[in-house]
Design a protein around this nucleic acid. Sequence first.
DNA 1: ACGCGCTCCGTAAACGTTTACGATACTATG
DNA 2: CATAGTATCGTAAACGTTTACGGAGCGCGT
Lengths: 356, 356
Amino acid sequence: MAHGGKLRPMKGIRQLAEHLDISIGTVSRALNGKPDVNEETRKRVLAAAEQLGYVANQSGRSLRQGTTNVIGLMIQSSRETVENSDNFFLTVTGGLQSVFSRHNLDLIMLPCPHDEDPYEYLKRMVARRIADAMIISETQRVDKRFDLLAKAKIPFAALGRSLSGAQHAWADLDFAGVANAAVDRLVAHGHRRIAISAPASDINLGFIFVEGYRRALERHGIPYDPALVLRAKSSEQGGYQVGDELLELQDRPTAVILIYELMAIGFYRRVMEAGIIPGRDIAVVSFREAPRAKFLQPALTCFRTSVHDLGVELAEILLSSMPAYSQEYPRKTRQTVWPLELIPGESDAFHLTTER
Amino acid sequence: MAHGGKLRPMKGIRQLAEHLDISIGTVSRALNGKPDVNEETRKRVLAAAEQLGYVANQSGRSLRQGTTNVIGLMIQSSRETVENSDNFFLTVTGGLQSVFSRHNLDLIMLPCPHDEDPYEYLKRMVARRIADAMIISETQRVDKRFDLLAKAKIPFAALGRSLSGAQHAWADLDFAGVANAAVDRLVAHGHRRIAISAPASDINLGFIFVEGYRRALERHGIPYDPALVLRAKSSEQGGYQVGDELLELQDRPTAVILIYELMAIGFYRRVMEAGIIPGRDIAVVSFREAPRAKFLQPALTCFRTSVHDLGVELAEILLSSMPAYSQEYPRKTRQTVWPLELIPGESDAFHLTTER
DNA sequence: ACGCGCTCCGTAAACGTTTACGATACTATG
DNA sequence: CATAGTATCGTAAACGTTTACGGAGCGCGT
């Protein structure tokens, strides 16, 4: 106040210091809650900072203490294999942030361009030290990014499992469990010829889903028939295509497990064109994220969970592997298989009669 | 090579310099394509940097030259009003990046937590100087963020119009045009009582959409009836609710304009429950982003565009207002109303007979 | 031989913070 | 009163880069 103008944009901590007639070091200590500063001067500093709208320059801070207070979430902006992005990432993000914000950590999303190799992109981001820790998503069955991050000694967690990351930190939806429970349910309804849709098996999700399905069949003494595994994109288009392929199969399956709700829209359309009605002529079960599928007719039987809470879990897993926060988030294990819940609908609400 | 170990993690430009027995200044100039450096030593430097995996520390660089080479895209991670995010943002992001990557600019997404005020969040990000320029989205009818960014003198562009940003840079889907064309088409088919769904009018999109609708009606001499404006969320749920409300209306409309394709799923479901069939008993027109709606039965008549190209346009608009790039992207105007194209379906493919 | 211009390179300051260290004043203790 | 201890603060170095500036070497024309 003594020195004049008060609302011009702050230039740095130096200005703030001489505005207060205090040394720059004390100001810094005051702002950062460090000891060795009189409680009354701290108040003055905080008040002045608030009034002048001072916010520490992040570059300066990062340079000095080698930390950014930023967590990076890498996503692939539009891969062919993953058209199901939808609100999924935004919902996970919400969960992540609800945890991070408690520690003044900001989350940024790093969208890898489709024309750039994800590995190279991540490498660039890591080298730039744009974030203190990383979260990677859409993990592949073998995924070099795990080694990259481990070698770079940067804390990280994955949204999705991988062979390459078995011993690292991750959280993943329990798609093996979904396939398992779906098969159980369908078998209980009398089905024995059950098809399944999945992404290509180099996407780890695709592998795990089919693997759960295979084991469940085995448990029920039903032979595994590779012809019943229909690889397709997780979109309406993909669902339509699954319908197409299914209709071509000889000894047509009486039930199908879709991996994503969007597929159901296309699948419904396709089989209905052939006069086949879901829930009467064929049983359909799927995973769903948003409250969408219930608007299908007949209502889709599906597995659901709180993707937001999955984000919370993943955030805690990540923090537990960051030295600065690990005490606050002690964990025995840093791998989570996130359960899903069955929401019964009408799309599989019939029992197969023996004569068929 | 002279000095020994070659694959340990680079610590800085200094290491690289003494590895080459060159001064640190020359190395920097070589890497950044500055003049005053022998073409052959430049090659040596680049080779060594590549081999040792050296990447400039971003904090140091930012601190020195006050620039980050990063563009920030602010999104609201999960507002009530916008449940239609879908792949929209990810697709726009793809378009943005295809332009930015040509200039070594990296795009990061800044998701505002739902429990934080978007204005405050943006203020924080700006103060942190986390990016050289900003793109904001989901603009409100009055949106303080425009003033904030203008006052901070940081280059920016908006995905969406706003009263507050009339003279700033933006690109927006032509929803007024959609409403206009939709009314034209429906009137040509004999409809005169046309309902419309839209988000709340403080979301600028909601205002513009209804305004286009109102003017089109006016042009056709049809009185504007506020009761036919059905405010709802842009989701399946919202569509279901629109169906609900529409069925309650006295002198029931013969046509409805939905603002988002997802709504059609819920809307179809609701009216079909009442025995009313889209494309026969009621005409439906909508906007669509993804190739989804065609899987509805009957196929939805809708307006479509390349959201990717919209991203490209927006990127160019932004660059044109950044001093460092404005010469490369000269523009007469920095405001774009992005056109959409009509994709005829069956959901409005009938003419209203006079007797009704 | 001298000076001039050009090419190339090294030196050092600066960006805004944080923090180790030392200095000062004051209090308590002997 | 001397001394040690404590609370509070100032000083300056350091983080990794970029860049203005000056200097060395060289060729060339007078």
